[in-house]
Design a protein around this nucleic acid. Sequence first.
DNA 1: TATATATGTTAATGCACAATTAATACCCAA
DNA 2: TTGGGTATTAATTGTGCATTAACATATATA
Lengths: 232, 232
Amino acid sequence: MNKPTILVVEDDSAIRNLISTTMETQEYKYHVAVTGKDAILEAVTHKPDVILLDLGLPDMDGVSVIKKIRTWSNVPIIVISARSEETDKIEALDFGADDYLTKPFSVEELLARLRVTFRRLNHTPNSENLEKSIFINGNLKIDYSAGCGYMNDKEIHFTPIEFKLIVLLSKNVGKVLTHKYITQEIWGSSWDSDVASLRVFMATLRKKIDKLDGKNQYIQTHVGVGYRMLRV
Amino acid sequence: MNKPTILVVEDDSAIRNLISTTMETQEYKYHVAVTGKDAILEAVTHKPDVILLDLGLPDMDGVSVIKKIRTWSNVPIIVISARSEETDKIEALDFGADDYLTKPFSVEELLARLRVTFRRLNHTPNSENLEKSIFINGNLKIDYSAGCGYMNDKEIHFTPIEFKLIVLLSKNVGKVLTHKYITQEIWGSSWDSDVASLRVFMATLRKKIDKLDGKNQYIQTHVGVGYRMLRV
DNA sequence: TATATATGTTAATGCACAATTAATACCCAA
DNA sequence: TTGGGTATTAATTGTGCATTAACATATATA
């Protein structure tokens, strides 16, 4: 995960500002919600990686917010609450909270617990990277997660750009990708010289893909437009 | 997960008994360790799903226990400590603890936090339990728990970072690991200078691994990307 | 068919990245 | 404080890759 997004739910403006400025100094991306309704809406629209949730919201009970979010998401929720009663903690934790801090809380501890959450997000494969990591098309195989490709079950070496390119093509099998789109994706910007390079890379890719598989053609040229990987 | 196993690490017999009886009333499966050495040994042999760790152990620092276990395992660790200092908490959390309770603690809260952990274990498919503590690849053998490696059944000494590195590589055999990922895992943050260091470590690792095994190559460079351990 | 334009292919160059060794800084224990 | 083992930094040499240019071939249009 590159930059985790945090949703801060807190109605007390003083604490909200404290947290906000903390988030900024840490250069975390974050959104803010003041009410429970806002919180749920934000959770839906922005898909935060973590939620910092105050239990004492003006419009609805904090635990209800947790329950609601838990009906469709397992996003980590760290509760920050003024209530230090044991029963409150247990209720919140059992209804889906992942951690519970009582006010007044230490900013450093909050950050440490956030780091724990991030660490876990990185270590446990979440639904995002569970997406199929192996692409198969004819005799061509690409293992996205391992970062390598195979032809007839024999590994072939790809340079970084070559790999980027074949990943791009394979993720869009059957679709024609324009020169502009491809160069944008690979070099970030589209120059004429990049298109010239692109042709060279296509040549080497074809040497590695098409020529090794005598009969099948994987990469097709669309004159004046771009390229396309064929489903064979 | 049907019946999670808990490892209880606590030298104070009163608290140990308190926790033990609690575990029994909950019908949790559990093991007990009194020293840090025991704890590490138990963690290896019984592969607990969760570890409850007291920081004040007689033989070694609790944080050292965390660090040690974290070199080869991501098992959730809940710290139970008499130290309520913020810095202690942050240190433990940053070195790999998942949660931190201060004594005297509420049994009910402990149970709630355990349930949070179990919940997480259930809906994040973790490979932890499947892992063996001994990794074998060609003539290379790594004993994660003992913290040492063998080449042709002869022990080779690894420095701490070297060991972390080879564990990381071995746990991702066949996968290309990016510079950024590796430096993040080992140093926690990714600086250019870390990549320079990484290269030095790779050189020494190769001297210890590749060069000792005349024919097989274990570590492969992916220029501009990172490194990969090959399954030989 | 002729001509222009677009694409394919190959080889050469320069640069960024990588390997390796040595030197320095750091850390812990005696 | 000192010494042994590690980590990090610096400096040198080596290598692979991206890019460019030059030329060959293909495709489109009149």
